[in-house]
Design a protein around this nucleic acid. Sequence first.
DNA 1: TTCAATGTTTAGAC
DNA 2: GGTCTAAACATTGA
Length: 288
Amino acid sequence: MPELPEVEIIKRGLQQKIVGKTIKDIEVKVPKIFQGDSKSIYGAKIKSIDRFAKMMVVELDNGKAMLIHLKLTGQLVFDCREGKKDCRTAGGHPSKDLRADLPNKFTHVIFHFTDGGVLYFNDLRKFGYIKLYNTKEVPDLKVLKELGPDPYSKDLKPEYLMKIISRRPKIKIKQILMDQTIIGGVGNIYADESLFCARISPLRPAKDVQRSELEKIIGCIRSVMDFSIAHGGSSENTFVDAEGRKGKMQNFFKVYRQTGEKCPECGGEIKRTVVGGRGTHYCPICQK
DNA sequence: TTCAATGTTTAGAC
DNA sequence: GGTCTAAACATTGA
């Protein structure tokens, strides 16, 4: 999916567009994507939208809340008038569908608002979900409760990471960044990019990473994500955010999926390997 | 045809 | 319990 910066951008876009709107009805085309009784929120008004790591919580005014996870290929597309693309706010997995006529065969849930606005949940691989809860249950949800601090949280400090690393002596540094219970919101793209920024090899045993290097990594996660948010996230140029700006982050990847390309720093070759089951890209010369 | 894919969970083996 | 691996979810595109 959409990692933290993309979810943050979607959240900001939807905050402007759907907060205050009333849900008229919901078309659930794939039941496993929308879990819960959709009819129980007909007539409910959107109160707020928050982001927790890569998840969004949409709070309603009838005591219910939706937990949304886009996983690898989810998208949220809002049209302020059904069938009109000129006022579209979209985000998520990059694909030309963000500009396409909707619904299409990957549209699994459609929210209709009383003012004519429409929100589409599209997901090619159907890994994503929308789960309905009573708002008061939300803080106790395991996926939220066990989440590590957000990269922007002041709780994310070298000492915090050192404590965790001391309990997991064999883990590689990249796996620390990817583990949602350690840091919330960093995915495969930003783990690779942040480690390149910090000049640390993703293969390095975490216990060998010095305090000063952890400091550097934390700073890099923040700067890479700031950069991405400022550039509209990493998605194809079909991505359009609330202001119609296109996502450009993918043009700035230094190592992610750049296997065989030249390192922008030293001109060496970017290598690909596997860490924790995920494709991992790095420059063996720059990253030690 | 074969491989990899922005995420997460679960099962089995050591 | 930690760690590693593979598999599962479903589909596309290089």
